[in-house]
Design a protein around this nucleic acid. Structure first.
Length: 492
RNA sequence: CGGGAUGUAGCGCAGUUGGUAGCGUACCACGUUCGGGACGUGGGGGUCGUCUGUUCGAGUCAGAUCAUCCCGACCA
């Protein structure tokens, strides 16, 4: 259970689990492995949702919605897919309850057993491809570029708040194309949308790359991903985009007539990000005072704390704040005036810092007389007294600066924890210290498995962006020849 | 599913050899406070995770079960 954070002397080193609870983001629910996301936390998810949704639409996608329940037989159509998900499915077997004959509450009505069990979707490929079968007959129907915002359920052995909950919110894009090249282009385009989102909105640097065969999505030909580094040096897979080849459309017999009138199977992709991004955001930026939110995803940009003794002072200061609030809101930022009269300023400062609000304005009688205010920023925990004139521009500039600074801090951290490694001894040493290791790998699953067994490190990705290091070398484990470096790390 | 730990007030905890539940904090009221997590006085709040046993009597002992946390295996 999370510790109550009431004392400033409290050791906040368990910033992850503790802060998300105290910071009003999420708490465990009565349902195993599921989470309750409180309003403040959900507001952050809504921000992510809105930005991503806009990006999807800009790249030509539309939203749609498919059923929560998947007939069991659908799931088993694609062999690798069912093997990958079978162990973690919630299954609906009955559709009715009845009063307990013994008078003890309600029980499942045995006569209401379903003919075919329904699976609560762990992902929607199967039910969507079963639907696409009816949508696709001609080359003129392609491409289909559809996204769904939904919840999914994966009954994991072990859950972890935000990173691996039994139920989570996500979006899943499912597209159909006439050619393999077009589908590959789509999968690549979308992983880059995710990378753009992570870097420019979440302020989290990510590496784009391919998964190795063993880490691939169940049923995919190729899985692209973005990998982020958390503050403990561990990697977090923050988003994936799959080239599915023709596996699903063949399983559901989705063919179209091409321009020559011949029947062909389509080419598919799927891609998704989830509430795991909330975990990434928290773990990438938080400090011992709580969350640090990038302005572009913060539900509140500026909190104003009046400092007063008398009601007259309170009224005068809040009136001034209302003016400033209008000016700042005109610039497109959200302002919260915290004029609660039962709490002292210091308490409010600490509370809003815990929630990660990027900046704070404090005004007291002395400021009111001098036409100044105290402007504090969350990322550096510094504060300065500034003139109140032009506060709108000042906040706008500050938000840009904070957004940039948070990214730079995370980027510098990753840079300082990423090294090229060429010997097995160094590999074992550095992996324990929380590094991303760029090393040569012979390309075999055996070597990958051995390395994981001995060090718990996995291949996070085979990079495709600026991390690509094409060079001849020898596998760090087996010594066999290799033509490029891959990223090894311990992962969540 | 294996190993370990824990379930008592919203949260964090105490509760002795079994005798019918307490502390801190939060909450409510009043007063004094208010530029970095205030203080005083008074007050409200608990089927002790659940079930079954042992007992005159169970928060306490036994068994089962559920859940949570940590470590493995599995995964976004």
């Amino acid at each position: 259970m999370a510790k109550e954070l009431t004392s400033r002397e409290e050791n906040y080193s368990q910033w992850y689990n503790d802060l998300v609870v105290k910071a009003d983001l999420a708490e465990n629910s009565a349902v195993r492995g599921c989470m309750v996301i409180k309003p403040y936390g959900y507001a952050i998810w809504e921000k992510m949702h809105d930005v991503l949704d806009r990006m999807f639409k800009q790249t030509g996608h539309q939203n749609a919605y498919f059923p929560l329940f998947i007939p069991k037989s659908f799931l088993s159509r694609e062999a690798e897919h069912v093997e990958g998900f079978a162990k973690e499915c919630a299954v609906v077997t009955h559709h009715r309850l009845m009063n307990d004959p013994n008078g003890e509450g309600v029980v499942v009505d045995p006569s209401a057993k379903l003919e075919e069990e329904l699976i609560v979707r762990p992902t929607s490929e199967t039910i969507i491809w079963n639907t696409y079968k009816n949508w696709i007959t001609s080359w003129r129907d392609l491409p289909i570029l559809v996204n769904q915002w939904a919840n999914v359920v994966r009954w994991e052995m072990r859950t972890r708040l935000f990173l691996r909950t039994a139920e989570f919110l996500w979006q899943e894009g499912h597209t159909a194309h006439a050619t393999a090249a077009e589908a590959i282009e789509e999968a690549t385009k979308m992983v880059n949308v995710y990378a753009d989102f992570a870097r420019n909105y979440m302020a989290v640097p990510v590496i784009v790359g391919h998964k190795s065969e063993s880490e691939r999505f169940a049923g995919a030909i190729d899985t692209l991903c973005i990998e982020a580094m958390m503050q403990d040096g561990k990697a977090l897979q923050a988003g994936t985009s799959h080239f599915l080849g023709q596996n699903f459309d063949k399983a559901f017999d989705v063919q179209f007539a091409n321009k020559e009138g011949n029947l062909e199977y389509v080419w598919a992709t799927s891609w998704g990000v989830s509430t795991r991004l909330m975990g990434a955001l928290i773990m990438a930026h938080s400090d011992n005072n709580g969350l640090v939110l990038p302005p572009k995803l913060a539900p509140i940009h500026v909190v104003m704390v009046p400092i007063f003794k008398t009601e007259e002072e309170h009224n005068a200061i809040v009136a001034k704040m209302e003016e400033m609030k209008k000016e700042i809101e005109a610039k497109g930022y959200t302002v919260k005036i915290d004029d609660r009269d039962n709490l002292r300023p210091g308490f409010k400062f600490a509370e809003w810092e815990l929630k990660g609000v990027p900046s704070r304005i404090a005004i007291g009688p002395r400021d009111l007389a001098a036409g100044t205010l105290e402007l504090a920023r969350r990322d550096t925990l510094t504060k300065e007294t500034v003139e109140e004139a032009g506060i709108g521009e000042k906040i706008a500039a500050l938000m840009d600066e904070i957004q940039e600074n948070i990214y730079k801090k995370a980027f510098d951290f990753r840079e300082s924890h990423t090294i090229k490694v060429d010997t097995w001894e160094e590999f074992k040493e550095k992996i324990e210290q929380g590094y991303f290791l760029l090393c040569h790998w012979d390309g075999t699953a055996e070597t990958e498995a051995k390395i994981q067994e001995e060090t718990k490190a996995t291949i996070r990705c085979i990079p495709t962006d600026s991390f690509v290091v094409e060079e001849e070398g020898k596998c760090v484990y087996s010594g066999r020849p290799s033509s490029r470096r891959v990223v090894f790390a311990k992962a969540y």
